[in-house]
Amino acid sequence: MRDLMGLMGKAKEMQSKFAELQEEIARLEASGQAGGGLVEVTLSGKFEMKGLKIDPSLFKEDDVEILEDLILAAHNDAKAKVEAAMQEKTQELTAGLPIPPGMKLPF
């Protein structure tokens, strides 16, 4: 019975830590670049686009497709950085816990 109470206490503690982690992740920001820094996208931890910077040299009618591709690439770069930061923070929190491989946290 004592083990069950201890387990319940740890579960509540973990739940609280996950809530804190989710708030921390929501405050994260990551910037991704494309075209050697000609396009930069900034995303929040919730993958919302917070900023977009485009070098003025790209504003030529002939380069619209290139600009579109660079924006997508910068967005994907920023998204990958946010995901990596989320994974790192989750691993820090769950260190030592027997969590099955492939299980994504926070829930």
Rank of each mutant, 00 (worst) to 15 (best):
F107N: 06
K89Y: 02
A30E: 14
G9W: 10
E88G: 00
G51M: 10
F18W: 00
E92T: 11
A84V: 08
K104T: 14
L105D: 04
K104P: 06
N76H: 08
K17P: 05
E83D: 14
P100V: 10
E48N: 10
L43N: 01
L70A: 04
L4Y: 08
E88T: 08
G36H: 02
G102R: 11
K46M: 08
E92I: 06
L7G: 11
D62R: 01
E48K: 14
Q22N: 02
D62M: 00
I66W: 04
I54G: 07
L21I: 11
Q87G: 00
L4H: 12
L97V: 07
A95P: 04
M103R: 06
K46Q: 14
K12H: 09
H75E: 11
Q87T: 12
L38F: 02
P56D: 13
P106C: 10
G9T: 14
D55R: 12
M86G: 05
E48P: 10
V82G: 00
P106A: 01
G96P: 01
A34N: 12
A11Q: 12
A84H: 02
Q33G: 13
Q87W: 01
R27S: 10
G6I: 03
I71M: 10
A95T: 10
L105M: 14
L97G: 06
L38E: 03
Q22C: 01
A78M: 08
N76K: 09
S44H: 01
T94Y: 04
P101E: 13
L43P: 09
K60C: 05
K10L: 15
Q33F: 04
E29F: 00
P106H: 04
P101D: 11
E23V: 00
V82C: 04
K12N: 12
T90W: 07
V39R: 03
Q15P: 12
Q33N: 13
G9F: 07
S44L: 04
E68P: 04
I25L: 07
L58D: 12
A80L: 04
A34W: 08
A80M: 09
M8H: 12
K89S: 06
Q33R: 09
E40I: 10
L52S: 10
M103A: 14
Q33W: 07
L58A: 14
G37R: 03
D62N: 09
I99H: 13
G6W: 13
E92V: 08
M103H: 00
K104R: 10
A84P: 03
K104L: 11
K10H: 15
A74T: 00
D69E: 13
M86H: 07
V39M: 10
L28I: 10
I25P: 01
K46C: 01
D3C: 04
F18Y: 05
L43H: 02
G35A: 09
T94S: 05
L97W: 08
